[in-house]
Design a binder for these strands. Structure first.
Lengths: 123, 123
DNA sequence: CTAATATGCAACTAAATGGTTGCATATTAA
DNA sequence: TTAATATGCAACCATTTAGTTGCATATTAG
């Protein structure tokens, strides 16, 4: 009973460790975060992106490759250029993941509270 | 008019690029994410953490150091051991940051919608 | 067609990362 | 006091990363 296009549709699939590694690794660089922000706000070609940063075109190209591997951006061929578009889905996944972390912490606090109310220390 | 303990209180200060780099870099490793989860759920000494992973004590110790530098965990001396406690604040900061990314995307969609409603294509 | 533009990719380098082992130190237990 | 436990830290190593330059290819403009 696996949905027919479970792999392609990506309807909120759980991310595996390697995928999460790539996402956070990709976000751990200020230039790449900037590229994600720009391309979430508006599409841009690699050349247009490269104009903004004090590094070679090839370096920016590599950053885009890292972001694409993490599915944080899409690279869409248009004539001789490649349009880069930020992918809000992957951002949401990462956010959700951090939400789970928060939940774990919340669970601990609840347990501590319950303990304090129900069972005063025996000392 | 800077609040007296602006640096120590950390009342939702904005994170700078280097800090964000460290946070995401620290989260880009499955072992470290696991350590954060465990120590958000319950405190643990470094030895206790090290028992869980198939690597040397020193390796786990290094992972903890990386997490501490990112302020994702605290290291609290207790007798001969160091108690590690996950820091939910930093997780929240990271989550918020990703929230800003989502907002940027939302803004773009709003602009596109406004354009479509107000101004049918001239072609 | 020719020139200019946009991209892809390989090879190289310096620095950072993630692991190891070995040893020193501090604390607790017997 | 002595032994066991918990940690800190340095030195080393293999791999990855982030940048570079140079060159090849594809597309568009004149």
């Amino acid at each position: 009973m696996i949905p027919p296009n479970a792999r392609t549709a990506q309807l909120s699939r759980e991310l595996n460790d390697a995928e999460v590694d790539r996402i956070f690794r990709a976000l751990a660089d200020a230039t790449r975060r900037d590229i994600v922000r720009r391309t979430l706000g508006a599409e841009a070609s690699i050349s247009q992106l490269a104009e903004r940063y004090e590094m070679s075109f090839a370096a920016v190209q590599k950053h885009v490759t890292v972001l694409e591997a993490a599915d944080l951006v899409e690279r869409i061929p248009r004539g001789r250029e490649r349009i880069i578009r930020g992918n809000p889905d992957t951002i949401r996944r990462a956010q959700q993941l951090l939400g789970h972390f928060e939940q774990i912490w919340r669970g601990r606090i609840e347990r501590l509270d319950a303990l304090l109310c129900a069972d005063p220390p025996t000392s």
